[in-house]
Design a protein around this nucleic acid. Structure first.
Lengths: 211, 211
DNA sequence: GCTATAATCGAACCAGCATTTGATTATTTT
DNA sequence: AAAATAATCAAATGCTGGTTCGATTATAGC
């Protein structure tokens, strides 16, 4: 080891956070390595000491964002509340997470295509594809947390019988979209938005008079 | 006029449709003018006879997609049904539209950033900005159709009192997202998906036992 | 103090791609 | 058939931006 990873030195995570930020503003292709580097007072060349390529950097951004979201949601699973209350907490947690970090939230929506399209050359290719597939698997897992939660609620008789897969995707679409339009300092706080949306979906899932 | 716009000649609309298709597969930046041209058996240079620049072509794609969607929705407004049934029709129409033309649907989600980021140079700048702003205005108008519909339903006492703006965005987020994950030949048809999602939101809006 | 190595930079490389230019071919109008 | 113009292309231009290379500087371990 050499050169302390403190002081003048920038950590991998610093770069990832900076990248997410620039990415949010400009999108993947419009973001240059120079832009990202400037954000942490480095030159573009220096970034290659930390990441194999721009693609790998994007992947790292998405991985961190997703793992953070997964971690938040997994925490809510341990509570002892009803399925309805648990789902409400999941939805609110997710949306608040998106509004608190729109950089990662927006990346999750917009940069997906860039990830799919990335074609690393030569030797790095294998590792990249492997990690990308792993990322998609995690993404599916994330979705499954919500789907299973709905399923469980149906089984337990708390929710009416719906197509859990579709309702899940409707929910996640709504959540992701928040990252696109949400602006800090708007009419409603992230918490307020989260509460309204959670209410929207829970009201839909609970048994109503008409049934 | 010269050179018939039939036969060997390609129409502006042909190019737009081709562009939407390539765009959907690759995303704006990864799509080259050559790619689009190839799709209609032209060279990249030829495209400049029909469009001032790549940015203008993207704009044309988005405009067409949006106007189509608006037109579909506006048709449903004239019906004489209850607000609930009207909204159901709007939702289903929109989602089916997205699934029937995922190219435009996905563009509406993914290429928005490219549009915002576009910086045309010199003379074309003014016209571009103007048209782009007009596009955003139309986009707001599209959103307002749903929002007003919800409002009207609340006023009429058909829907419970919700924050129409937020619920609208939840809905549109869900709809847009369909364009991202929907695959032809999947478990459910576009109609089926549309019905489930419409049901999800309408159930949420109608008065339920708990209230 | 050496030595290995981490972290960084400046400069160069090079490929891809939007766009321009100038010519060519087809089609319509008169 | 001549003139005007629409539609097209091949080739050249020029720039942007990812990536590589070699050198330099700082730090940790011995």
């Amino acid at each position: 080891m050499a050169r302390k990873p403190a002081d003048q030195s920038v950590s991998k995570d610093d770069i990832i956070i900076a990248a997410a930020d620039v990415l949010k503003r400009n999108g993947y292709d419009a973001t240059t390595m120079k832009d990202i580097a400037a954000q942490v007072n480095l030159t573009a060349a220096s970034l290659y000491h930390h990441f194999k390529s721009k693609d790998f950097l994007l992947l790292a951004v998405l991985e961190i964002g997703l793992e953070h979201a997964i971690q938040l949601i997994e925490q809510t699973l341990h509570s002892n509340q009803s399925y309805a209350e648990k789902l409400r907490e999941m939805i609110e947690t997710h949306i608040i997470g998106v509004t608190e970090n729109t950089a990662f939230g927006a990346a999750m929506v917009f940069e997906m295509k860039a990830l799919i399209n990335a074609r690393p050359n030569g030797d790095k290719e294998d590792e990249f594809i492997q990690r990308r597939d792993a990322f998609f698997a995690r993404r599916d897992y994330f979705e499954s947390l919500f789907r299973r939660s709905i399923h469980a609620g149906i089984e337990a008789g708390e929710f009416r019988s719906v197509d859990a897969a579709i309702v899940t995707r409707a929910m996640l679409g709504a959540h992701n979209w928040v990252g696109v339009w949400y602006k800090d300092g708007g009419r409603l706080s992230g918490e307020a938005i989260a509460a309204i949306m959670a209410d929207t979906f829970l009201t839909s899932l609970k048994y109503s008079a008409e049934d």
